[in-house]
């Protein structure tokens, strides 16, 4: 059967990986290619690169980063951040990325998902959803603009709409859990994953190997993403997979 995927996420700014990567064995811990190869060797199933460049130059640099990564990496990778048009998608996918991830732009203009899916196929189009619980409404709401703006979309409804438009995968981040390292938002993940027909990647809250097991068992996630615990070497992809194997989770 198909395995559960472990996905390290790297923030890239102006062509360099940022947010404290602590790998002494690397010549250059800020180089996206070196880190990509490192995670590949560790058994990562896929990688996500999030472009957090603020400038136009930074975005152009990202295309070069994608080309370099694609030339050296033999596992799939997704690029997100600042993709606002079909032209942006073309640039990134033609540079060698396997998938692009759309967030704010997809909410503002859902037909962008369809344009991308029609042109490249659904398998290339990931819709990233930032979700936060709204106490008064008693439901999870979709946030845009890096979590700064609340929208009127309820998360499951938006996920379904995104898939109707052609999204082939959902990258679901719990803003309530993000950075807390006390586990993924299992209720949210399970609510979305059981409601949709495409794979769901859980994100936000990973602190240890047990949390990954929970994301798959209770969260019903198809994949789980993490950033800082891998970068700071609090655990490794290898360790997480070893643990999952012992727990009977099917991993590569």
């Amino acid at each position: 059967m198909i395995t559960k995927r472990i996905i390290p996420c790297l923030d890239v700014k102006e062509g360099r990986v940022v947010k404290g990567v602590q790998f002494v064995e690397l010549r250059d811990a800020g180089d996206p290619v070196e880190l990509a190869k490192f995670y590949d060797a560790e058994g990562a199933d896929e990688l996500v690169f999030l472009d957090i460049s603020a400038s136009h130059e930074g975005r152009k640099t990202m295309v070069e980063v994608v080309e370099r990564v694609a030339a050296e990496l033999a596992i799939p990778f997704t690029v997100g951040g600042g993709i606002n048009s079909l032209e942006d998608m073309k640039r990134i996918l033609r540079a060698g990325a396997d998938k692009v991830s759309l967030n704010t732009a997809a909410v503002l203009n859902p037909s962008l998902i369809k344009e991308g899916a029609d042109f490249f196929g659904s398998q290339c189009i990931v819709v990233a959803i930032d979700a936060k619980y709204d106490e008064t409404l008693g439901s999870w709401r979709v946030y845009t603009h890096g979590g700064r703006k609340e929208t009127n979309w309820e998360v499951v409804a938006w996920a379904k709409e995104a898939i109707k438009q052609g999204a082939g995968e959902i990258l679901l981040t719990s803003m309530d859990k993000d950075g807390r390292k006390d586990g993924y938002n299992l209720k949210l993940t399970s609510a979305v994953s059981t409601a949709v027909s495409v794979p769901v990647i859980a994100s936000g809250g990973a602190g240890n190997a047990l949390h990954f097991a929970q994301a798959f068992a209770e969260g019903k996630a198809d994949a789980a993403l993490a950033a800082s615990i891998f970068h700071y070497k609090e655990t490794s992809v290898k360790e997480v997979k070893q643990y999952l194997k012992e727990e009977g989770v099917n991993v590569r």
Binding site: M1, I2, T3, R5, D45, S122, Q123, G168, E169, S197, V198, P199, D222, A223, R252
Partner: peptide, 18 residues
Amino acid sequence: GVTSSGETYKVPHMGWNE
């Protein structure tokens, strides 16, 4: 996308398989 006993599963088949 649905088993002989009526359970649904995800399509596309996406990821690593043996």
